[in-house]
Amino acid sequence: MAPRLSLVVPIYNVERYLGECLDSIAAQTFEDFECVMVDDGSTDDGPAIAKDHAERDRRFRLVRQENQGLGAARNTGWRHLTPGTEYLAFVDSDDIVPPHAYQLMISTLGDTGSDFAAGNALRLRTTGLTPSHAHRRPFRETRLGTHVSELPALVTDRTAWNKVYRRSFFDAAGLLYPEGILYEDAPVSVPHHFLAERVDVLADPIYHWRVREDGDLSITQKKTDPRGLVDRVRSMELVREWLLARPEPAFAEHLRAYDRNCLVEEIPMFFWTVPDGDHAYRTAYQQHVSRLLHAIGPEAQAGLSPQLRLKYGLTTAGRMHRFVALQRLHRAVRRTRQAVGRR
């Protein structure tokens, strides 16, 4: 008989954290699971740690492949799942899953019949746990059987690992993770929110998302890496392309909502790093963000604040020296206000 829950854990050069991650999975109060670990061509001792877990606990098994990246490793894990499992979840191999996480999400799905459950996250540091700013708005309160059209903040719920899917929903959606890019989560997670009939949103923290404080930084911590910027823009474009290809009338409104979020929240995240980036980073910002802004179109930008319109105008005009000066001024004003507020 197939286990009820399948877990996929991609592994690449994380020997420092892997044992703690796999131990947290083994300690789940929901015990009826399989864990498919995918060694994505690691060059450290991580695969030996994974192999040891597989030998000690029959619920764990190891699959190996040449290095292809996180998206490809998740897809490989999905292809190796036992047929007939009821639920599916993904875990990043440097993070920790609290003991109650899957019990809570699966029991909630059993009560509601929703297509998937998504939960809050905490950032994990050596000093302890703190709330994840990225998950603050959509997971402020528990809302069962909801939808992104009812809770627009869910469009910011881009991460792969804070969810438990009904396997039938995930498989039928036909969305696998894009391969060869960073920020591969959103082109799957965001469309799933639009495709779902109902989603359970849990304010309870069900995931501990690690901040690497020394050694190799995580993808999200490499703030001024041009590749990260290029791939994040491409991630947004992939979501837009998927929405544009949907024939249902409702998806035209979903596209407008997504574009609005890109303009107001996601693209402005680059603003704060452009002054610190080198020439290559600033060039990547100007070229790739300009392409995205042209695709979104001027009508969507008409309702933005004057400040945003100015920054986007400078971006598309290639006036990066003026953009950097304006952003440095904006950053200085913000820091002054924050300092006054703390007094």
Results as ranks from 00 to 15, higher is better:
L202Q: 09
Q221G: 15
D171S: 04
P178A: 03
E184W: 12
G145N: 11
Y165H: 11
V148W: 01
G215R: 15
D185S: 09
A196T: 10
R140S: 13
A173I: 11
V190Y: 02
A186V: 08
R240Q: 08
W161P: 01
D185Q: 08
T224G: 07
P249E: 10
D157F: 02
D231F: 15
T142E: 05
Y207A: 05
A245G: 10
P178D: 12
L175C: 12
T220A: 12
A186F: 09
N162C: 01
L244G: 05
D231V: 05
G180F: 06
V239F: 04
R240G: 10
S189Y: 04
Y165E: 03
P226F: 03
H193K: 03
Y177V: 15
K223W: 08
S218I: 04
H254M: 00
I181H: 06
L144P: 06
G228V: 04
G180H: 12
R260H: 14
S168F: 00
H193L: 05
E141A: 15
T224P: 00
T224N: 03
E141D: 14
P249V: 12
V164T: 09
F251Q: 03
R212A: 03
L238E: 07
G174L: 09
Q221F: 13
V155L: 14
R143F: 12
L144K: 09
P247V: 06
P205K: 04
P152I: 13
A245V: 00
R140Y: 12
R212S: 14
T220F: 11
E237R: 09
A186Y: 11
E253L: 10
E197A: 15
D259Y: 08
R198Q: 14
V211D: 05
G228N: 06
D216T: 15
V164D: 01
V155M: 07
W209N: 02
D185A: 07
R140K: 15
E237C: 13
F194S: 02
A257G: 07
H192C: 05
R210C: 03
L244R: 15
W242R: 04
F169D: 10
E241Q: 11
T220C: 04
K163N: 00
P152R: 10
F139H: 09
D216P: 08
M236F: 07
V201W: 06
P205V: 11
L202R: 11
L217P: 10
S235Q: 05
I219W: 06
E184H: 14
D204R: 10
V233E: 05
K223T: 07
Y207E: 09
V199H: 02
L238K: 04
M236W: 11
A172Y: 05
A153S: 13
Y177H: 15
P226N: 08
R167S: 06
R212H: 13
Y258V: 12
G174S: 14
R166C: 00
V201D: 05
D171H: 02
L238I: 10
T156A: 07
E253V: 14
E237H: 11
R158D: 03
A172H: 07
I181T: 05
L238M: 10
I181F: 07
K163V: 07
P226H: 10
D214V: 13
F251S: 04
I206S: 08
R227D: 01
R256S: 13
L182M: 12
R158P: 01
D204G: 02
W209S: 03
L182C: 09
L176I: 12
T159H: 00
